[in-house]
Design a protein around this nucleic acid. Sequence first.
DNA 1: CAGTGGTCTAGACCACGTG
DNA 2: ACGTGGTCTAGACCACTGC
Lengths: 255, 255
Amino acid sequence: MTEQISPERKAADRSAGSAAYSPLYQQIKALLLESLDRGEWKPGEAIPSELDLAARYQVSQGTVRKAIDELAADNLLIRRQGKGTFVSTHHEARVRYRFLRLTPDDGHQAVTSSVIIECTRVKTPVDIAALLNLRSSDTVVNIRRVLSFDGRPTILEDIWLPGSVFKGLTAETLAKNKGPLYAWFESKFGVSMVRADESLRALAASEEAANYLDITEGVPLLQVERVSFTYGDRPMEVRRGLYLTDRFHYRNQLS
Amino acid sequence: MTEQISPERKAADRSAGSAAYSPLYQQIKALLLESLDRGEWKPGEAIPSELDLAARYQVSQGTVRKAIDELAADNLLIRRQGKGTFVSTHHEARVRYRFLRLTPDDGHQAVTSSVIIECTRVKTPVDIAALLNLRSSDTVVNIRRVLSFDGRPTILEDIWLPGSVFKGLTAETLAKNKGPLYAWFESKFGVSMVRADESLRALAASEEAANYLDITEGVPLLQVERVSFTYGDRPMEVRRGLYLTDRFHYRNQLS
DNA sequence: CAGTGGTCTAGACCACGTG
DNA sequence: ACGTGGTCTAGACCACTGC
C-alpha cells in the first residue's frame, strides 16, 4: 500500500530532536485530508472503518481514532455510532444553511426563497482577487441574488467564484438548481466548503440595495463579507451580503 | 474520599439498559465542573495532575484525560505540556478581551481605554429580567460606558449584572479597576464568565448614542447584545453594545 | 448476529518545563 | 532527575445499527 507510513519516517519523526516531528495521528490526519481533497470519499459517503484505516496505515485503531476525532471536531467528518464515519455534506437537512447565522427574532422556522438577479463572468475585481489568491486577469463568476424569508426580501448578496474551477456555471444551469448553493457546488463542481471567515459591519442602504430589499435608502443594514475555504485552506468563494435585520438577527456563540 | 464514584453507581450506570447511563468520563467531567464552580481551583491556578485525579476518582488516567479534553475544548481548562492543566482566566494577556470580536480593519493592535458614564443599582427591566432569570423586583447593577480605541470613541455599552451576586460593585470600586471587567469579576466577585451568546443587528444611531460616539444621528451602528454565562450555564450578565464600524469590523469564524 | 463506533483500562515511552 | 501532559499500543467490553 502506498499510503502506509514508512517505518523510517515513523521512526525518524518520532525520535527526539527531529525538526520535522509531528505525531503519528497528525500524519494520519494529513493523509485523510488528502484523500478527502482528492475526492476518494465523496460528501455524504462513509469512509472506511477505523480498523480498516488502521490496517491501511499500519497503526493502531486508537491512533486512527484520534485523527478522526480532530476531523470530526472541525466538522469535516461526522461519526455515527453503529453506522460508520461520514464525509460532511451541505446536502443534509440537519446542516443545510450551515453557514447562515441569520435567524428570526421570534425563533420560528422561516420559508426561504432565492431570486437570481444576474450571473456573469467578469475580470476579477482587485479586492476579490486578493481574497481568492487570483490575478485580476483571471475571470470570476459573479452571482447577484436576493434571498427572501417568509416572502420578505431580506438578503442582497454578491458572490464571486473562481472561473477556472466553476466551469459550466451559467445563469441557465444556476436557474435549474434548487436548494443551497453549497450543496450544488459539491455535486456539480466537486467543491466542498469546509470553513469560512466572516467580517461584519453596519452600513446605510444604497439606493440600489434599497430597491432590491424594498426599503428606503439609508436604512441601516448588516454587511457580512464571507470568504469560504475548501480542504487545505484554499479560498474558493467570496460573498458580500447585505442583511436586513429588522425582524432577524445574526446569532453567534462565543467561548 | 467523598468524591470517588461509588462502585454501585459505576456498575449501575454502565450496565446495559440503564436509563440514566452516562459514560464514566462524563461523570468525571461533571465532578470537575462542580469543583470549578465551587471554586476549589481558582482561575489561573493548576488543577491536580491527571494521575492524582485518577487516584481521587478511582478511574484510569485515560478516563480523566478524556474528561479534561472536553473541558479544554470548551476553553474552561488550558493544558500546558510539562507544567499542568490550568483553570481558564480572563487575566492572561493571551485571552484578554477574549469575547471582544471587534478588530481594526488594518489589523494593527489598538490602544484601549474606557470611560464610565454611570453605574447605578436599579429595578430589573423586564427584558433583562427574562434573560438573567430574575424577577423584576430584583435589583441589577447597570453600568454604562464608552470604550475608545486609539483615542476614538467606538463602543457605547450598557451592562446589567445581578445585584445579589455583585455586592459591593459601586461607581467608586469600579473606577479603581483597571483592565478588563471580566478579569475584575473573577478576582473581586468570584464570577467566571465561561461562554456567551451574541445577537447582532444594524441600527441607526439615536441622538444620545451619536453624542457619546461623537458622530451624527442616524449613522448605522452594529448593535451587539450579549448574554454571558458562568459554570452550569447560569446567565450572569447582559450587555448591549453599539459598535461604530467605520474603521473596525466584527470578525467571526464559521465551521 | 456481525460490524460499526464508544468506553475503559494498563502500560510504555516521548516531549516539555523546572529544578 | 523528576513530574507534567502527549502519544501510541493492545485488548476487553459496551452501545447502536442493520441484516
